[in-house]
Every structure is written in C-alpha cells, then in structure tokens.
Nucleic acid binder design. Structure first.
Length: 270
DNA sequence: AACGGAACCTGAAAGC
DNA sequence: TGCTTTCAGGTTCCGT
C-alpha cells in the first residue's frame, strides 16, 4: 500500500522510535522478505548496534546503524512498522535498550528487509531510482526530460521508479487529475504547460497526503471503514468533485486500475 | 530495448 | 450465515 507519503511517515516513526537507541536483540522470522540474505548471522550482526539515522528515497527506507551498516526496507504492498511484542505478521523485531520493541510487519511478504553497507545501498538508490519529487525540485523541465524517452501512457511512466521515485498507483492517478492530464497520453506528448501543471500537482498531492497521515496518526486511511481521502482514486461512478458534471471513470492498463474524469482530463485531439 | 501479462502472497470485502 | 470470488497503494520475471 505504501507510496512515498506512507514511506515518509514510516521514516518519521523510525526517527522517533529507533534513532539514538541501541538494538539489544533482533528476531527474524526467516520469511521471504529476507530473500537474498544469509540468515544465519543476521540477528547477531544487528545486536549491539546503535541506530544513528534514517533515509528515504522514493519508496525505499534505510535505517543507518553505527559502524557503516544499514537496514534497507521496502514495504511492498503491506509492510508497516509498529510498536510491541508478537505483532501479527512480524517479520523483524528490534528489541531496544529502552525496553521497546519495533516490529516490521508484512502480511503479504512483497516487502523486503536487507542488511547492507549504508554507502553501497545509497549508491544503488542513486543508480536505480529517478529523482524523488519530495526531496528534490522536479520541475517542468525535468519532467519533460524524463518523459521524452517513452511513448508509454503518462500514468504508467509516472509509476516507473527508475524515472521518478515514489509515486504509485494512487498518487499517479491523483496527480494526473490535479494536472488535468488524461492517464493515457503518451508520456512524450505531454506539453510544457502540462508538465508544469504536473510538477505542482505532484507536490500538492504528496503534501496533502502527508498532512492527512500526520493528522490520522498514520493509520492507513482505508483501515476500518474510514472515508476515502482521494479526489479520484476509488471514486468510479461518482461525479467529479471539480467539474461536478462528468462521472469518474475506471480503466485498466499496465494491469492496474486507474481513475480519471473524462471531462477534466480529456485526451488532446491530434 | 520495450511492452503486456503472469507471478509472487495474504486477507479484507464484495458477491452469491 | 458461510462459502466463493475479487481485489489490493509493488516489484520482478518471462515471453513476444
């Protein structure tokens, strides 16, 4: 579920709970989330290490440890952190010197946990991920450059982490609605005004979501019958909240559903 | 190289 | 009520 804002929120939790604390014990469940890791020594390697900071890039999260190591987290579809012993689907438990336990939980196990060298992990992010629109200014010029190389639908291109890091299915749909761009416009046909609107739209939807996450204390907005906080996502058949005339449509491409207003986000004639 | 589709998983919600 | 189907905000692999 997590996209950039949710991962940023997770980062803030780790800042609060972990940074400055020493790990006294680490418990792993040896599940798929550790894929590619040698598990035999993992717990021992974490024991006694102090957490000194966190870093997020796109949907990736690092917990940096004393001595140059770092734990790399990716939350996949269902990853989350919480406090407490024996949490459901706890994959990694970090027991701390203040008696607290921070758990990485992930029901579906699409997430990932990896112990590595902090500088190497950061270098990998730099190579594999596009700019992070929350950490860097990604203006119209940058977006045009990023999208010039592909004819894929702008919606699909926006979710490509190698081009731009952090947007997923929801925030791509939301940003396109704000920018009044049809999700199927070929990325290389987005014009400069469109790119300019998209640049501000991306920042706006991210900022709005982070405010919302802070206010709701980070509970996933779809937990427990809460209202849908999005403008188009999940609103198929409802009137567009901007033009109030057209109904929101749902379509599918790249295997994912997307939502848009056919009136506000008309395909340009060509 | 670039694309669409399937695969990887579980659990909540909708459908019957 | 209870069983079945559908769907989920991500990535990766595989065949074309």
């Amino acid at each position: 579920m997590p996209e950039l804002p949710e991962v940023e929120h997770a980062k803030r939790s780790l800042d609060l709970w972990l940074v400055g604390r020493k790990i006294t014990r680490a418990v792993i469940d040896r599940s798929r989330v550790f894929r590619g890791q040698k598990l035999s020594a993992l717990s021992k390697e974490l024991e006694g290490k102090k957490a000194i900071g966190t870093l997020r890039r796109g949907k990736h999260l690092l917990l940096e440890l004393e001595g140059g190591a770092a734990i790399h987290f990716h939350l996949g579809m269902s990853g989350r952190f919480s406090l407490g012993n024996k949490q459901p689907h706890a994959r990694l438990e970090l027991h701390l010197d203040n008696g607290q336990i921070v758990a990485f939980r992930d029901a579906r196990m699409f997430g990932r946990v990896e112990l590595g060298v902090a500088e190497e992990l950061k270098a990998r992010f730099a190579v594999e991920l596009g700019p992070d629109p929350w950490l860097e200014k990604v203006g119209a010029r940058e977006l045009l450059a990023i999208f010039a190389k592909t004819k894929r639908p702008i919606k699909v291109a926006l979710m490509d982490q190698a081009r731009l890091a952090g947007l997923g299915n929801i925030y791509a749909a939301e940003a396109l609605w704000v920018a009044r761009l049809h999700p199927e416009i070929p990325a290389n046909e987005v014009d400069r005004p469109g790119a300019a609107r998209l640049s501000t739209a991306i920042r706006r939807v991210l900022a709005a979501s982070m405010t919302d996450l802070a206010e709701t204390d980070g509970t996933y907005v779809q937990d427990a019958g809460s209202r849908n906080p999005f403008r188009v996502y999940g609103r198929e058949g409802e009137p567009c909240v901007r033009c109030k005339k057209a109904e929101i449509l749902k379509s599918e491409h790249g295997g994912r559903s997307t939502f848009y207003c056919p009136r506000c986000q008309a395909l340009p004639r060509r």
